[in-house]
Design a protein around this nucleic acid. Sequence first.
DNA 1: GGCTAATCGAGACGGTACGTCTAGTCTTCGG
DNA 2: CCGAAGACTAGACGTACCGTCTCGATTAGCC
Lengths: 226, 226, 226, 226
Amino acid sequence: MRGASVGDGGDASTIRNVSIRAHYPVRVTAEPVETRRGGRVRSENARLAILDATASEFARRGYEHLTIEGIAAAAGVGKQTIYRWWRSKGDLVAEAVLEDRLLGERFHIPDTGDLRADLATWLGEVFGMLAGPEGEGLLRSLIAAAADNADIGRRLRERIAGEGAGSGEASVTDRLRSAVAAGELATSAPVAEIAELLVGAVILRALSRTGGDREAVSRLVAAIVG
Amino acid sequence: MRGASVGDGGDASTIRNVSIRAHYPVRVTAEPVETRRGGRVRSENARLAILDATASEFARRGYEHLTIEGIAAAAGVGKQTIYRWWRSKGDLVAEAVLEDRLLGERFHIPDTGDLRADLATWLGEVFGMLAGPEGEGLLRSLIAAAADNADIGRRLRERIAGEGAGSGEASVTDRLRSAVAAGELATSAPVAEIAELLVGAVILRALSRTGGDREAVSRLVAAIVG
Amino acid sequence: MRGASVGDGGDASTIRNVSIRAHYPVRVTAEPVETRRGGRVRSENARLAILDATASEFARRGYEHLTIEGIAAAAGVGKQTIYRWWRSKGDLVAEAVLEDRLLGERFHIPDTGDLRADLATWLGEVFGMLAGPEGEGLLRSLIAAAADNADIGRRLRERIAGEGAGSGEASVTDRLRSAVAAGELATSAPVAEIAELLVGAVILRALSRTGGDREAVSRLVAAIVG
Amino acid sequence: MRGASVGDGGDASTIRNVSIRAHYPVRVTAEPVETRRGGRVRSENARLAILDATASEFARRGYEHLTIEGIAAAAGVGKQTIYRWWRSKGDLVAEAVLEDRLLGERFHIPDTGDLRADLATWLGEVFGMLAGPEGEGLLRSLIAAAADNADIGRRLRERIAGEGAGSGEASVTDRLRSAVAAGELATSAPVAEIAELLVGAVILRALSRTGGDREAVSRLVAAIVG
DNA sequence: GGCTAATCGAGACGGTACGTCTAGTCTTCGG
DNA sequence: CCGAAGACTAGACGTACCGTCTCGATTAGCC
């Protein structure tokens, strides 16, 4: 299936993020960058089409079966346009993760004031997602991607366990800090470590296909913030 | 590079394990198994050569760059002999993991009587292995393999976090139980959950390429068995 | 599709021909052959099943796509039973041709007393067969077989052009001789050469996919026995 | 044995013929061909290397044992480049025959003014070639190829028996016409049929491995142009 | 009736080649 | 110079057969 051609009208008005690599016309930083001489500028349309295609192909086929050719076809783009700006599919997926095209709101953790309940709710949701058919392979695909590409690994950790996850999404660490502020957790509580252990357990469950019922969830919560 | 041919002299005297699939002459169980009619029996030599080659290729190139052709060549075996007995490289690696060809003693956890110290030692070693060049990709490759193949995921969990890891290797859970028996840990301690959280954290560290110094290790230990 | 097993009841009562190779129980020649000691005798059932399967597979798929495995399966026979008695599929087809399993009556030439008319009839039939869907590939497959295997080539020539074609089938040469005897052709007529030229033309037409209408046929006949 | 890589420098200055298929830059016809948009053009270097390799492999191993992989390796070309432009080895050989890479001057027929002598000379040479070791399999391989592929069959017939054989090579028909013009043969002589019968006889001799001494040759000539 | 020996169906073995797919690079045209 | 298109070399994929090598099970002739 071949997507419609992107065209290249140049109406790059909907820039959503900043590219990782240099030689990009629209930038946040003000540095002039070796003042390019002549030549057509990079097409923002193409870039977005590629990232969109990456996200949808990733969701559809998983990281392992992701192909550059498939992405190029789905994006209506030449392969070279991808290779010109990204070194590998790992890079590509890393940027898609960075732009929050893959995780979405799937790892949102609530804040009702009751930390243990919130953690249980969150874990329950995530485990449910793992069991479900649609999200079944998503997290595992992300894990495979992270195993392959350092940037993805780092970003995945920041996004879920880290602090200041960006994109307005609260991470587990953020929720724990909120609990400390609310007096639910001791000030001395090792917030970062707890988050790390919790997220690690989720990943292990994803890898071992071990579902988790309500009781398993509460036992896990009790073990870490008992 | 082509390995020497396996030959097939039939001197399969060093059987190390039991095959996963049926139709195999040497078995532990006494069941006669649908009494074969005709046909040469499966070559144990070929099976072992394939698993050995799988292990060494895996260590050398990682799961993603593992090729069936490479394994066949290294094992001195026809490709069909692999495809006859395993459906995919995932299956192949799963059996190699099952037969302890990949992990070896790398995740051995000591038992000196001091649980916290032992856990710290173990975490330190594992983190060190992650940082080192040789084991650098090993765990991440195993994670990728587990993301791809359910059997590998399950087996990996059992082997490291599970109980009765088999092969005489003690798992984290085993060590924790020993601590409970020694009175170091309360009888009510959620042993399985602690092991899971700990192993999960290791996997997360592997994915995020986050090293861990001595202090980070002790903070992690304190957070979980403080 | 696997043919029913041949069984091996030993009721080899319907022997139709003599095997090419030695070590066969039923023979014309009386030589005792290195007096075998013990051992099971060759199964005539298996031999016939193999030749039948060869013929039907040949008709169905042609010489190029004939496979030993296919024949073995269709005959309900082990591959080794084929390799024990024939060296190649060429040998196998050669014996099938020898036993008239492939040509049948397809190249029968009539004898009405009018040589030219008979030749025209014969050529017309053969050309018609070439055009038809069923016999379309048959002659070409035989040609391919002959190109591959000397025995087949020789036998094919004998059977169609040669004298004493055996099997009660009259060859072109036989028909020409009959014409000489009837005074239709001069005693000095180069019978063998005429037959050769005629059959060669048929083969060339088969290879070049050149059909031949009634007129083309009579022109050919006129050119050779004008 | 792997041929040197073709490179692709674009110095395709020695174009020898016109490709069969479309989408090719160098053409005789002036038709603009659906005005290509983008895309690298077909490499003439690769095309020639493939056809050369086909010819040499054909001569060396014969049609049956010709392999696409062998040709690709000998031509220093990827397999896909072959499959992109030809559907089968039959197609490939057909184009090689079309470009006169296989027959060469081997079937050249002399014209001394004495038709019968010339035919005898020609037949003698061809039969000699059939007997010799180098050309032994060549004609039979071509026959096998023709049996497999219609284009080859047609072309083979044109080239040897047909008129206006192209490539400046005179065919048997051409020689017969010359004899008619010289008054050696009656104007009413069925030139085409005589050529066909003669060439057919040659093919039959090739298939049946029947050599032909001087006398056999003259008998054949006498039978057809007596 | 046991022994010896060669056959039978069956099917695993090391290999070769198939035709397809994708990687990453290179080359064309058009904007 | 960018971008779409698409040909290029390279090499792995999973399948089909090759011809060989065991298997257990028959089935003869000879003791």
